[in-house]
Structure formats: C-alpha cells, structure tokens
Design a protein around this nucleic acid. Sequence first.
DNA 1: TATTAGCACTCTATCAGTCCGAGTGCTAAC
DNA 2: GTTAGCACTCGGACTGATAGAGTGCTAATA
Lengths: 349, 349
Amino acid sequence: MALDVRKKQVLDAIVDDYVSTYEPVGSKALIERHNFSVSSATLRNEMAELERLGLIEKPHTSAGRIPSDRGYREYVNSLMSYDNLTDDERSDIEERISGSVDDITDLIKTATDTLSERTGFVSLYMSPRLHKSFLKQLKMLMIEPGKALVVIVLSAGVVKDKVVRIPNFLTGEQIMHISDSVEQNLTGKPLDEITLVTVATSMKGADIPEAMMNQIVYEAYTAIKQADSLNIYLEGENKMLQLPDFGELSKARNLLDSLSNDGMVAGYVNELHPMDEPNEDSFMIRIGQEITLDGLQDCSFITTTYKIGDDISGNIGVIGPKRMEYSKVISQIDFVRKTLNNKIKRLTE
Amino acid sequence: MALDVRKKQVLDAIVDDYVSTYEPVGSKALIERHNFSVSSATLRNEMAELERLGLIEKPHTSAGRIPSDRGYREYVNSLMSYDNLTDDERSDIEERISGSVDDITDLIKTATDTLSERTGFVSLYMSPRLHKSFLKQLKMLMIEPGKALVVIVLSAGVVKDKVVRIPNFLTGEQIMHISDSVEQNLTGKPLDEITLVTVATSMKGADIPEAMMNQIVYEAYTAIKQADSLNIYLEGENKMLQLPDFGELSKARNLLDSLSNDGMVAGYVNELHPMDEPNEDSFMIRIGQEITLDGLQDCSFITTTYKIGDDISGNIGVIGPKRMEYSKVISQIDFVRKTLNNKIKRLTE
DNA sequence: TATTAGCACTCTATCAGTCCGAGTGCTAAC
DNA sequence: GTTAGCACTCGGACTGATAGAGTGCTAATA
C-alpha cells in the first residue's frame, strides 16, 4: 500500500481527530483543525480515494469519515509517531510498582492494575509460562494422615505448591524419603521434560511398596504440571462502560460477556505469543476484525512480554476500544513492562 | 405494621406481579391476574392505603404501583412462602459441587459460580475467617539464600503459605531449628492469640543471634497473620447487564463501579456477619436503601454462612436487583450452602 | 493536470405537536 | 364497605418539519 505523502497526512489527521472526538471527520473539520494548504474540495477527493483503498469509511452518506480497521492498521504500522512519557508519568508508574510487596505475582498484578488505571481500559496479564524453567527443589510435607503438601521451587525462585492426597498409612518419614528421592533425580530438569515416567523412575530410590507408588507418582506429577497451567487476570472491565464506544447497552453487554470468558481470552492471548517467540521486546497488536475472538471486534489487543530470569516469561497488555491513542497506550505498556522487568530482576537476584 | 388480610394479599400480589413483569401494576391488572373477589375500585382504595403506609409507590401519577423498599422488606419478613427446589435443581447443584476438585478454596469457588449461574445474578464468597482456627503445624523451608517459605497448617487442614525474606547468611539448618522451635511453642494456639510477642518468645529455644531475630519474628508473624486476611470473590458481574433493572447505562455503570471495589463490598459483607454470630444458619438480607454501600441501592444482598470444621466459617451469597424472586434465590443459596458444607465435611474428615 | 468554488443532494438529529392508553382519585349511589 | 363512573394526568409513541453537516459532481481556473 504505497500512499503518497498527502494521503498519509490525511489518514493520519483523520485517525487523530476521530480518536479524540469520536465524531466522523468531514473535509471542512479537517481543514479547520490541521493546516492543510489545500481546499476542502481537494481533501474530499483524497478522502474518496482513501475510501476506495479501504482505509476509511462512512457511517452513512452524509457523514464524515472514520478509519476502517485497515486504516488503523496502516496508521499503527507506518504513520504513528511514538510518544514519550512525561517525567510525572514515569515516576508515577515507578512508584506504584516499586511500592508493591515482595511477591512476584503481586508485583505483576500491581503492574497490570497500574496499566488499567493509566489507560482507562482493560488490562491483563498471563501467568508466567514455566515449561522452560527447571526444578530447583521439591519437598513434600505431611499435613495429616492422607494429605501432604508438595512444594516446588523453580528457577528464578518461583514457588508453587499443592495439597495432594496420599495413602493413609504413609508416615512423615516415608514421605520425606520419597520427596528426597524425587528431588535428587529431577532437580535441574526443565518442567516440560518431566513426565509421569521420569517421576516414577525418580522414586525408585525410596523403597516404598510398589502398590502405593502409583498414587503418589500421579499426585506428584499433577502437582508439578499444575504449576505450569496458564492463568489470565483481567482488570478494569467496568471502566469500558465509561467509553462512548460502548455507550450502547448491547455493545457493552457483548463486550463484558466476551471478556468474562477468561479461558477464551487466555487462549487467544496465548496464541498471539508463540512459544518460541522470535522478538520478545516487540508488541503484538490486533485491531478490530483482526481479532478472532467473538464479540471483541470493536476492540484492539496490545500485548507484550515480561521476563522472570532467562527461562520464564509471561504476557502483559491492554484491551481497549480500537479507537484508542495507540502511541500513548503502547508507550505506557512499554514503560510498565520495563519497570516490571527491572523490579523482578532486583527481586530474584 | 399490622396489615389486615386483604392488604397483605394485595401487597403480596403486587410484589409477585412486579417481580415477574417489571411493569408497575395497576388495579385492573391486579384483578385480571389474581382472583380477588372485589372490584378494581376497592383495590384502588387498598392501594392508596398501602401507599400511605409506605409499602408501595408510584413512579408517576398515571402509572401503577411498585413495591417500595419497605414493601419488599414486609414481603420478605412475613408474606413470602418458601420455595422447594425441584429434584432436577438439587441434583444439578449437587453434581456441580461434587464434581469439583479436592481443594477447599476451589470447592467454595465452584459453589459460588453455581450460585451465580443458577440465579443469573452476582454471587460472592468471603474467604474463611481463620482467627479462631488454631495452628497445627508451622514449617519454614529454605528456598535460596535470603528467602524462605513459611507453611502454615491450621485446624481442619487449611494450608497457607508465604515466601518471606530472611537474613542472607542463615543456613537451612538454622531455619529448621527456628521453625521447629516456633512450631513447638505455638501449636494449638488460636490464630488470634498469636502476637508479635508470642512469636518472639517462641523462638527463644532456637539459639539464633539476637540481631537477626527481629526480622524473622516479624516475617513469621506477618506470614501467620496474612493467612487470616479477608478476601472476597465476586462472580457474574456481567450477568447484571442482562437485567432490565440496569437497562439504563448510567445505572449499569454505577453498579459495576461499585462492585469493582472489592474492598468496600468485602467490608460491608463482613459487617453483616458479626464475629460472634448468634445464628449461623440464618440469612442476612439487606434490601435497597438498607444497604449502606454507595451505588448499590437498587440491589439486595442475601448472604449466609458456610463452615469448615467447628472453628472456621465464611460467607456465601448473592447480590441481585432488589426486584428479585426472594424465595427462589434464598432456597438456592440455602441448598448450595448445605451441599457445600457437606462436601467440606467429607473432605476434612 | 491538479485544484478549487459552487451547488444540488442526502441523511441524521432534534424538536414541537399530537394522540392514545393506562392508571388514578374522587364522588355519588348501592 | 363496596362499586360504577368520570374527569384528569402523564408518559410513550408517532409525526412532520427543519437545521446542519457532509458528500459528489461539474465547470472554471492556474
């Protein structure tokens, strides 16, 4: 799509105006607000051309133009200029995130909340993907007869645990044995290389009757695997009701219903960030119709990646109306991500 | 408020009709739908009287009547007949809750989700109040230099844990010592009797240099206290947008904004259920203006109590529009509570 | 050839006016 | 105490007229 300079300026101006006013922009309004050195008639010709190219559209015959999804895409890809945060904004974000407690999950959550508050949109994080992280410790604690707590420590100091059922007559002593044996054999292994078989063989050392082995193997295995399950956290859904974009009740309903389906959203965000991500510092941007999730076609997704150590990463980002100030939102996410990464680094060193 | 029989019938009919139609009920409609053996004129007189008593009101001069908050209250207190669930409903609830996993929190969450799904309203649970539960075990696990995991096992098998910072040069050995010492001295104590002082004295046994004691005492103490912090979980906020009661965008906004403030809602529900609750099987019902939480004056709260063992309890309930079928909702909550209590009992035995 | 002024046309949003129906309170009769 | 009847009120739905913003097209211009 090779647009000449003036067409680019016009599209840029239309997006800017429409984003800030939520009113279709006409040729006259365009002349008034931007200093084009041509007349409105010329702009009308340009706009007709842009419409033929599929970059802008009319809600109805006698209205101004609004950007189409492809228009936003063009804008984001090649027209938009990046924003710099003000010092105030920076220090605000830094304070909020640094003032947070020591727990990594709390930290990520705080970063996400900050994002929603600062943009006025929905923000989200995906729990860290641990499949590449490796096992540093595994302990089993007897809680009461028939119940034990499996504690798993992963690289970068991530801790997970799960209460599991065990055969009733196992003693604390025996549990310790098993746990030591498993730990010795599995420490250093990445999570995605741990299978039911490796867990089973790792227990060979502890001399526990074969009969009760199966249950423990299974429970230990699920405890480990559960650590790697994918969770999503969404914040600020209600803020979307303030936006004119969702001022019609049916649109608002649609939006909130779609967002309430955590699993679907998580799956979608997960798809956006493939496992072997080539460029981790980049943003994934999906606009309007590009989004293959039902009911979110008036939205845009902007997500990026945070890191815990070298092996572990997760995603953080924003879901807003597609009519948003992309440059502002992206720079907010960028700075929050950086601040978060730094704080995590300090925490895990 | 001593109402004669017919006034009661009229109020009852008005509430029933209004709840099911969301239309103000007039004297004629009342005659048509219920077989009163008097004329509409007589009913008009009765209605005028009920209005004088503050039990019903008119949206405007030429409209029918709708129940006032006091009208709903009167209805709930003395008119409403209790509903019995159908066998289908019972088995549906039982299946959903019994199909859930073994973790108590998951179980309560499932029960809450069920409640929202079955009523179409917002449901909630408050995390168990643990202040009366007593300490059964306390273990500290070294995770890496400077970091330990405190695992706390409470009565009824409730497990809590927290990662804490410890002095860098403490060895795993020393941590074990401290943990054993604390455990020995505090086991059997109710959480609300554990203070900074008792924690400190409990560590006297482990011979750790005085200097680093303070930090550990503090961290152990906060770990214990955090176990008792009050959390709330809300489910189904978006469902409220389907209701005509919140069909105006401003009302919907108001509602969701209020509900998004978890802390406020938690505080309110907590107030409703005083610590030394006299009758644990009862329902707390708050209707419309009775609710002292901003922005929820078109709602009703109905909450009750679930139990984990003898010492631990929490709350579960529903927030819906005040125009709701109270008897149905109450019986749903009642049955969910019973099912939940049973399942918890089986789980903790 | 690109630009522009001008003009006829289109469509929406808004506002006032009208009418209908449901419901009320009151009065007088039963 | 109950009821029929009636005048009155008010919101909601419909209508038609109007203003305003914007367009596309044409013909003139640089």
